[in-house]
Amino acid sequence: MTLEDLDTYLSSDESPENCMMLSDLDGFMHGIACSPVLISAEEWVSVALGGDPNDVPAWVLKMITMLYVDIVEGLCSDPPEVEPIFWEAKEGHVIAMDWCEGFMDAVALRPKEWLRLTESGTHGFLMTPILCHLIDENGNSVLGIPQEKLDESLALAAQDIPSAIVGIHQFWGQNTKTE
């Protein structure tokens, strides 16, 4: 099975109604891997799949596990490697919003613990490339980026996400994970 097979399954009527699609799943798993505290697979897999993991084919769980292991190994390699799965528009530009929303879904599992990063005074900026991609229900940037600068800002922010993820992972690596 391939990532394309996983993407096809997640996008199909066979998948659980509330499961994440591939890009937000990848962002979510990067958020889990970067979490300030360990989050059990039993918890995060249920969130990712939108329900009971027993309701999906075994190969789907295996692919998700393999993807997560690849993410962790990439973050722990020297030098670290981060290859987010972003969508690409027909026009060729990168769409990172789903990935960023997935990452923030992981943050939402332990929001108080993430405050040490966001309120650190030294490393909170690492969240900026992700937060840039959060858009409210009216299509406006939650960071207040003007509409006329939004496309350019999103493109630049998407380029910065891999290095930001490395920085976030390293920040928490220096502050031992517990739970």
Results as ranks from 00 to 15, higher is better:
residue 128 T to K: 15
residue 22 L to M: 10
residue 96 A to V: 02
residue 83 E to Q: 12
residue 55 D to F: 04
residue 127 M to S: 11
residue 56 V to W: 00
residue 77 S to I: 09
residue 41 A to D: 07
residue 165 I to V: 15
residue 27 G to D: 03
residue 91 E to I: 14
residue 64 I to Y: 01
residue 116 R to M: 06
residue 6 L to T: 01
residue 160 D to Y: 03
residue 42 E to H: 08
residue 49 L to E: 01
residue 89 A to R: 15
residue 167 G to R: 09
residue 76 C to W: 08
residue 143 L to P: 02
residue 62 K to M: 12
residue 40 S to T: 13
residue 65 T to I: 07
residue 112 K to A: 13
residue 75 L to E: 05
residue 49 L to P: 00
residue 112 K to D: 11
residue 32 I to L: 05
residue 90 K to D: 11
residue 176 T to N: 08
residue 64 I to F: 02
residue 54 N to K: 09
residue 38 L to W: 10
residue 17 E to Y: 13
residue 17 E to F: 11
residue 5 D to I: 14
residue 54 N to P: 00
residue 44 W to G: 04
residue 76 C to E: 15
residue 22 L to V: 05
residue 9 Y to R: 08
residue 94 V to K: 06
residue 48 A to L: 11
residue 66 M to F: 09
residue 45 V to F: 06
residue 178 T to H: 10
residue 111 P to N: 09
residue 27 G to R: 01
residue 80 P to W: 06
residue 55 D to C: 06
residue 8 T to Y: 07
residue 53 P to H: 09
residue 166 V to C: 10
residue 137 E to A: 15
residue 144 G to P: 05
residue 4 E to H: 13
residue 173 G to E: 10
residue 123 H to C: 08
residue 37 V to S: 02
residue 95 I to P: 00
residue 96 A to G: 02
residue 85 I to K: 01
residue 30 H to L: 11
residue 51 G to D: 11
residue 179 E to L: 14
residue 101 E to K: 14
residue 113 E to Y: 05
residue 9 Y to I: 03
residue 122 T to W: 04
residue 21 M to W: 10
residue 6 L to G: 00
residue 170 Q to F: 08
